[in-house]
Amino acid sequence: MKKAILTASAAALALAASVGYAAARDQIQVAGSSTVLPYAKIVAETFGETFTNFKTPVVESGGSGAGIKEFCKGVGENTIDIANSSRKMKDDELKSCVDAGVKEVEEVKIGYDGIVFATDIAGPDWALTADDVYKALAAEIIVDGKIVANPNTKWSQVNPSLPDWDITAYIPGEKHGTREVFEDKLLVAGCKNTGAQDVIKAGGGDDKAVRAKCVAVRKDGKAVDIDGDYSETLSRIDSNKTGVGVFGLAFYENNADKLKVATVGGVVPSTETIAKGEYPVSRPLFFYVKKAHLGVIPGLKEYVEFFLDDQMIGPEGPLAGYGLVAAPEAERQAQRDAFAAGKTM
């Protein structure tokens, strides 16, 4: 009995201590943005089903920052191969990568995440600006140099050129990835332009607190969070003909027979204007590849090529079906060429 126990514990200790794990990793490891996660999952799954000689990549979520941090830990089998990101890698992040030995990073843009404002097809034309959205939907806005609870009840009070409709907007719920774009590109921008930001800042608080105040959405029922998908927003617009809904571009285009799209800052949203960066409420989505792992981790090169293939990121591909705004043909080709040429940051 005692010998058995002693041997067992000794064996267990030896197992724990002798971490001579040497087998080569044969599975791609990806981590990062939760906005990119659904797209990466679809590609990983289809990749595993198409290339039966490679394993299905493992995709972790956890956020762009966390993914890039993990990515920049170094080169080697116990570090990840790809970091998904819903924003560009920052310079100091790239520097930390290089310092840790990840000298060559390839940037791949997979497409865009863009949102549009749309109303019922029978309604008048809409031309919105970030300021209008901020003044209509923020919890507190600036009136005569003072921050007050939002007094606007009609769009025409916000901007006389807008229709005389009661304010009802269906916006992405807080757990949506697109909520961040909505906050950054509209509410924060409007907060800044109308001067509210300076007043809030003068009232004290750090940048984070100021931002939180700027992006706080009114809770009096005029801005409705939609946690479901865009079809729920559409059905709300159907039942409330004077409602304004926020949609993904792809969804709007598929339902253009029911919806009229609003311009933002004078720009009509389309794949072209989003891809060119003219339309403000969008952001490009990226992933970053560790060049040192190409050719070492089996399937990594094929995975990236497969991701960039038109059958994945093209306008007819499954990712577009899930809400990705496909980049224009030339840009997709440029991404493929850049990857083939091994261009690094």
């Binding site: 595993g48 493992v58 995709v59």
Partner: peptide, 20 residues
């Protein structure tokens, strides 16, 4: 498990405890 990368999309069966 979140921090050691086990909160992940894993489609393939792990053959050994060393697989994801």
């Amino acid at each position: 498990l979140l921090l050691i990368g086990m909160v992940a999309f894993v489609a393939d069966y792990p053959k050994t405890p060393f697989d994801p």
